[in-house]
Simulated scan of single mutants.
Amino acid sequence: MPENEPWEYSLYIPHDLRAVTVSRRTLRLILTMHGLIRLVDVAELLATELVSNAVRHTKGPAGLRVRWSPPGALRIGAWDADPQPPEPPRPFEGQAESEDGRGLALVRACADVWGWQPLTRHGSHGKYVWCELSAV
């Protein structure tokens, strides 16, 4: 499928930390098969942070969605069952010792744009946290 045609993939993720690795490897395969290898490293980092947050900080299932929109926008998003908004990204300063709290700061630093939106579907509530990378 050429880069000038839109496409979208979704991956259902059980509440299991191993799903982060599965999501990262699946994303690498998708981007490689679509000829977008130049975006793989940053996209993997972003997807890892989004999916990790969805799995670590919520109790239900989650999902990864990857969408390509010509002429060159890659949107990566993770949904989860928790309707609470994500914690705002904290500055990197003073976090050198901390293992937690850097995920959305990395997303903000590496993505062109990011955001979140509440979800309501079939009586379920949750949220969708997304970011975009430009390939142009």
Rank of each mutant, 00 (worst) to 15 (best):
residue 109 A to R: 07
residue 83 P to N: 05
residue 98 S to P: 04
residue 95 Q to K: 11
residue 89 P to R: 02
residue 73 A to K: 07
residue 93 E to R: 07
residue 100 D to T: 08
residue 119 L to Y: 12
residue 106 L to V: 07
residue 90 R to Y: 13
residue 88 P to W: 12
residue 119 L to W: 13
residue 85 P to L: 10
residue 80 D to C: 05
residue 105 A to S: 12
residue 93 E to F: 13
residue 94 G to N: 04
residue 109 A to N: 09
residue 117 Q to K: 03
residue 116 W to Y: 13
residue 74 L to E: 04
residue 85 P to S: 15
residue 88 P to F: 10
residue 116 W to T: 00
residue 105 A to M: 05
residue 99 E to C: 00
residue 97 E to F: 09
residue 105 A to F: 01
residue 88 P to Y: 10
residue 91 P to F: 01
residue 84 Q to G: 11
residue 79 W to Q: 09
residue 78 A to I: 10
residue 87 E to G: 08
residue 108 R to D: 14
residue 81 A to R: 05
residue 87 E to N: 07
residue 80 D to E: 08
residue 82 D to E: 13
residue 82 D to L: 06
residue 76 I to Y: 09
residue 91 P to T: 00
residue 103 G to S: 03
residue 86 P to A: 05
residue 114 W to A: 03
residue 114 W to P: 04
residue 92 F to A: 03
residue 91 P to Y: 03
residue 83 P to K: 01
residue 80 D to I: 03
residue 86 P to L: 09
residue 112 D to G: 11
residue 73 A to G: 06
residue 75 R to Y: 04
residue 111 A to C: 10
residue 112 D to E: 15
residue 87 E to L: 13
residue 101 G to D: 14
residue 84 Q to Y: 11
residue 102 R to M: 12
residue 113 V to H: 15
residue 92 F to H: 04
residue 80 D to M: 05
residue 95 Q to E: 15
residue 101 G to C: 08
residue 114 W to H: 11
residue 106 L to F: 15
residue 79 W to D: 13
residue 82 D to R: 00
